[in-house]
Deep mutational scan, measured.
Amino acid sequence: MADQLTEEQIAEFKEAFSLFDKDGDGTITTKELGTVMRSLGQNPTEAELQDMINEVDADGNGTIDFPEFLTMMARKMKDTDSEEEIREAFRVFDKDGNGYISAAELRHVMTNLGEKLTDEEVDEMIREADIDGDGQVNYEEFVQMMTAK
């Protein structure tokens, strides 16, 4: 299944994987998964984290390695993001709930994920998604960005 991913997608997933893999040992533990999910405003229980890991832990060693992570991402993409997942993601970014993602809100979430971005990089990300040019990202623009192939 992971063989249907483009090189660009694999590179993006590698970057995402390293955000989860806090200690850089090449595997994601339940603790690391929990840290990232909490930084995104989720509050999973230990059991939920274990279930999430077990779902993709092909070799049964209790952690997720990069090939397992790729399989999980490929699977998720095949079920292409349901509207509800996209709306949920939008809410994570839209901290003040005004229906727009500002540069400050984007920077806040990315920083929580451990991504240190310059102001230019954040502005560039907003510009790429900002179709109507108002300097922020509304829900429609967010959907376009998330579903762009």
Rank of each mutant, 00 (worst) to 15 (best):
M110E: 02
F66Q: 06
F66I: 06
D25K: 03
M125L: 13
E141F: 01
N98R: 10
P67Y: 00
P67H: 09
N98Y: 09
A11L: 08
G34A: 04
A11E: 01
M37R: 07
E12S: 06
R127V: 06
I126M: 14
P67Q: 10
L106T: 04
P44Q: 10
I101G: 02
D57C: 06
D25E: 07
F90S: 02
Q9C: 12
V109P: 06
K116D: 00
I53F: 11
R38C: 08
F142C: 02
K76A: 14
T63R: 10
E121V: 08
G135V: 07
V36N: 00
L19T: 05
L40Y: 01
D81E: 15
F17T: 01
R75Y: 12
V36I: 12
F142M: 12
F142A: 04
M125F: 06
D57S: 05
F90P: 03
E124H: 05
E141A: 03
D134Y: 04
T63C: 03
D59W: 04
R127T: 07
E12H: 09
E7A: 06
T71R: 09
V109H: 12
T6A: 12
E124P: 01
R75W: 07
T45M: 03
L5Y: 00
A74T: 11
L19K: 15
E85F: 02
D51E: 09
S82F: 03
V92T: 14
N43D: 10
R38K: 11
R107W: 04
V36S: 07
V137T: 08
I53R: 13
R107D: 03
F90M: 05
E84D: 13
Q136E: 12
K95E: 10
M110P: 04
N43Y: 12
I10M: 07
Y139R: 02
G26C: 10
A58I: 02
G133W: 01
G60V: 04
D123P: 09
Y100T: 02
D79F: 08
D21I: 02
T35M: 02
N98A: 10
I86C: 06
G97D: 11
G62F: 12
R38M: 13
E84I: 15
D94R: 01
D132S: 15
E141T: 15
G62I: 07
D23H: 12
G62S: 12
P67K: 04
A47C: 05
D79H: 08
P67M: 01
F13S: 10
T118S: 11
A58Y: 08
L19P: 10
T29N: 01
A103D: 11
V56A: 11
T111D: 01
